[in-house]
Design a protein around this nucleic acid. Sequence first.
DNA 1: ATGCAATGGTAACCTAGGCAACGGTTCGCT
DNA 2: AGCGAACCGTTGCCTAGGTTACCATTGCAT
Lengths: 162, 162
Amino acid sequence: MPPEDGRRYIGFLIADVARMMRSAFDRRVRRIGLTRSQWLVLSLLHRRPGVSQSELAEMLEVERATAGRMIDRLERKHWLVRRPDREDRRINRLYLTEDAKGVQAEMGRIAAELLDDAMASLAEGEREALAEMMERMKAQLQSMGQRRAALAEAGSQPGVAP
Amino acid sequence: MPPEDGRRYIGFLIADVARMMRSAFDRRVRRIGLTRSQWLVLSLLHRRPGVSQSELAEMLEVERATAGRMIDRLERKHWLVRRPDREDRRINRLYLTEDAKGVQAEMGRIAAELLDDAMASLAEGEREALAEMMERMKAQLQSMGQRRAALAEAGSQPGVAP
DNA sequence: ATGCAATGGTAACCTAGGCAACGGTTCGCT
DNA sequence: AGCGAACCGTTGCCTAGGTTACCATTGCAT
């Protein structure tokens, strides 16, 4: 195998594993009436209650308009509420309802079970090593993204004209 | 960190890394006029020329209808051709055009470069260990999927009714 | 204080994917 | 031979996300 293909091979593997975990999870949570974007929102809001719509959009990597519509749907289902910020009237802050907290707990159980199954063939030490390597890759990818953003910023700076 | 959260944490890590790689790749290939579903098709067809539309749909995990429309668009761009199978007139077999092969080669270069960057902080031995662990996880996930499919099959068998 | 750019959220339009139904073709069974 | 099941690809309908333009609100600079 030529070295270039070796690197691409790892790329495919990571993508495949992530995709398979995601679709297995999708299938399992569908039984409790959740779609992918919905459980993403619920999971995020559980970790960060009170985020604004824009913050949520950014963290989920979707457009603000898209996030707004996702929130509409979840609010209609009474799984979250919009509450106006006290100091800035432009901002809606988002909170899970009690209903959603139950659903969220069930999701957590399903996720843990799925990961246990998926990592059944990894020893404890291997899991730690895997997590540690993935952390390094994530940090690296983050720094790449930031560098790119910084360059874009700088690139638009010198030109003074609109 | 409670053990259940530890497992979920790895899940998030894998998902994050895969997502970040995917979006970084999206951003880079967009310059050569490719969207995600398009480069997925091109990449697949490069490895497996002559697949049928249904096979492609299954490998990409989309519906046959969706695959058909993706193929329509790529055919209009002259990046692939449908050719009827000689023995089975239901089947269209798919082949990349010369145009597409150039694009595919450029894609490969971009992918290898991106992975090099993303794995910059991993030693050679670590990369191999990572690949090997991901292979085991993928195999495990595959067997889980198959078992599920087999059970569904068996479950629908006993019933004789329509 | 007062323009004025930046920010938060929304509405309108377009594209893309899932789902269900359909016509055409092949295969298996009798 | 022929009849029904299974399979391949397409079409129409619905939902969801991206893009753009817009309004309201805020913060800043003068």
